[in-house]
Structures are given as C-alpha cells and as structure tokens.
Amino acid sequence: MTATRREFLMAAGALSASALSWPALAAPQFESIFMFVPAAPGGGWDGTARAIEQACKTADLVGSFQFENVGGSGGMVGLPRFINQHKGQANAVMVAGAVMIGAAISAKSPIGIQNTVPVAKLTEESGVVVVPANSPFKSFGELVAAFKADPKKVPVAGGSAGGTDHILLGLMLKALGRNPREAAYVAFAGGGPANAAIIGGQVAAGISGYSEFEEQIKGGRMRALAVSGESRIPGVSVPTLREQGMNVVSANWRGVFGAPGIQPAQRAALERLISSMRDTPAWKDILVKRRWADSFQAGSAFEKYVAQDVNDTVGVMKDLGLA
C-alpha cells in the first residue's frame, strides 16, 4: 500500500520535523490536537473533522493530529466518553452539531452538548422542502394549504424521527396552527431511500438538508419549494420559508467543542486556532468544493447560540412527543 505507507512515513516524519525544522515564523499554534469525532468514519462530522485536519496541516497550524471515532446514536455514545476521558485536556476538541442536541433530548440523556465548551461554529446547512417533479403541488402555497386542511393526507419523507428534518416539519405545522403530532412523517434510514421515495412519487413531499437533494433538484427530478435558513442559499433561487410568510428558521450546523474544565486561556487558544484555520486558503477551498456554507461564529456568541438552540429544540421535541 504505497499511499498509506507514505502517509505513515509522513506522520512519523512530522513528529521529528515539528521539533526540529520549522522556522520560528511559522511555528504551529499547537504541537498536537486530539480530534474526537462522535460518529463513525465517513459521515458529516467526520468529514468536517478531517477537513479541519487538512486545512490546519496545510497551513502548519498544528503539528500532528490524533483521531478517535466513537460512533452511535447521534453522538450520544461518544459524548460521555469525551466528557469523562478528556476533561481538562487543553488540546482535545470534538466536532459535533445540531443533530447531537436532538439526540440528547430524545435519549433523555442527563448530559448534552452544553456540558462541553463551545469553541466555534463552522458551517451550516439549510433544510429544503421538496416535492416530486410531477407533484400536483405547484407552489409552496398549495402545499401549505394541503397541510392546513389535513396533515395526515400529506406524507412527508425525511430522516429518522426526532432528527432535524422531523423537527423542521414540526415547526412548520406549528406555525400553521396544527399539532405537530398530526404529521404523516415517513422516516427513512439515510438519504438514499428517502431520495428514492420522493423521486418515485411514493410520498407527497420531502424534507432534508439541501445537499441531500441538490443533485435531484438540479436534475429536475424534484422541485424545491422553500429553504429553511435565515436567507437564501447563495446561487440557489429557492425562496426561504420566511419570504413565503412562514416564520420558521432552522439550519443544521456543525462546530467545534473543547473539553469541559479547560481554562479560559486554553479556550481562547482553541478559538484562535479555529479562526486562523477558517482564514486559510485550504479551508476556503474545501468550503467551495463541498458546498458547505460558512457560518463562522466563535466565543460567547456561539455559546449563546448553542444555549438558544437547545431551548428551542426541547420545545419542538415536546410538541412532537419526543421529550
């Protein structure tokens, strides 16, 4: 395995190189970072974590990275391990996001993302409401009218119950004055089957993150009726829910968290690292390539954002009967 061996040699070399050969000018901010990913390799959080590694290494911000993936249950298997085993560790960071909040609430877990130290929000993704290409619903207004009349007659496909897609549907029904529990929500495991059910016209509509449906929308197999973010997605002409008279905003964000019990100075160092990382050309390049929307927010603003999101999510989950 040439590539892996080369990587191994590079990693081995990096250890000695970091001690000896870097000029003082470009001294890395951290000798090493321990990156904890509460999900299996290959998913969104893992992808974000590896992208951070890539950007930091290209810019010599960090000497070396060590990864630990502990997947399962929306991060609720990994989170306790991060909190218990890495308490006070100044160079330990975890990549997580909105999904973990919902997972903690539905698992009725005593701990949640708020038990870690928020460092920075990096990316976010709007939800999108779609219908099959040949759907009778020509506009968002028609879909809303159908929801108002009887939500049970409008089956909507999305990810697992209690996840971000389900929550968005709940918020929409609530805004329409219906009980979120009336939703005919058809949960699918993973994006593939949901995509197929919508394209195949098995359901009336679908909700998911924009990237999940992007190719089908572009290919004309689905029609996007609304996006759920504050504002429109750059380069995409789909109007927001708010523009269409529904006061609902939600987005699936991902960010970086520090271990509980670290000192304010250590926290500031992590914030500095992530904000320098965000300014690197390598990171900007990754954002463009993966079509991630930059939504950088650090420090106390991010902490407030997390607290607010936890509050809001608890509210919706109660309405959905999941909390």
Partner: peptide, 10 residues
Amino acid sequence: DKVLTLKLGN
C-alpha cells in the same frame, strides 16, 4: 493499525 489504519484502541 498500519495497513488498514484502524485504531485498535489508542
């Protein structure tokens, strides 16, 4: 650990 880069514990 080396070929499959699977971490068997730290």
